[in-house]
């Protein structure tokens, strides 16, 4: 990808295998939205499929409200808490390669740990989703893969000049991928209906 105006870094890979990785968000509570396309070194492309915020030590934080009326002022009043918490998110790998050699299948190696992570800008989303071959990877990945796929397509459609046409083509690809699962197919279609 063109690095002239690299998009801002939003996280860092903290665990990875070939088909997925987990990254930590730079800012607390600021994981990229479900279904968004992210890119890390490789380059490797992935779709965000889950996110969470938890205590760094792995224990469940104890609630202690002390008069503040909203979250922001509560955190401001207890600045040490930011260091005890972290936001991480999971992503399903859906492709790899430079734009000329963009591949919509799994890369030969997992994403490197500590590799920086960027949210793909609209043009890149449009370019990547020109081919819908990645839907197969998406559908067979996470537990809530149908929700992820629907979210991903909704976001990607906004990057295309004719969102409805894009969703129609994507819908047809889904129909081909789910030939024997009409209920599943119609459920996804209801979620992406323009």
């Amino acid at each position: 990808m063109n690095s002239k105006e690299s998009p801002e870094i939003i996280g860092q890979v903290v665990a990875a295998d070939i088909a997925s990785f987990t990254a930590q968000s730079i800012e607390l509570h600021r994981a990229p939205p479900l279904g968004s396309l992210v890119q890390t070194d490789g380059p490797i492309y992935a779709v965000v499929c889950d996110a969470r915020t938890e205590s760094v030590e792995g224990r469940r934080p104890v609630a202690h409200l002390s008069g503040e009326t909203d979250l922001q002022s509560f955190l401001d009043a207890n600045p040490h808490l930011r260091h005890l918490l972290r936001t991480t998110f999971d992503a399903v790998v859906v492709g790899h390669g430079e734009s000329a050699t963009l591949r919509h299948y799994l890369p030969p190696h997992p994403a490197p740990i500590f590799a920086p992570l960027r949210l793909c800008p609209q043009e890149e989303v449009a370019r990547f989703s020109e081919s819908l071959d990645f839907l197969k990877l998406l559908l067979s990945a996470a537990d809530n893969s149908d929700e992820v796929a629907a979210a991903c397509l909704r976001l990607a459609s906004a990057a295309h000049p004719d969102p409805r046409a894009f969703l129609l083509t994507a819908g047809k690809e889904l129909a081909r991928l789910l030939p024997n699962e009409p209920q599943r197919l119609t459920a996804i279609l209801r979620r992406i209906r323009p």
Binding site: L167, L168, G171, K172, A175, P179, P182, T186, L189, R193
Partner: peptide, 16 residues
């Protein structure tokens, strides 16, 4: 389902 909407019908035409 009975209530397939236009979009679903359009998607399924030529695929399903």
């Amino acid at each position: 389902p009975e209530a397939t909407d236009d979009f679903a019908r359009e998607v399924m035409a030529g695929t399903t």
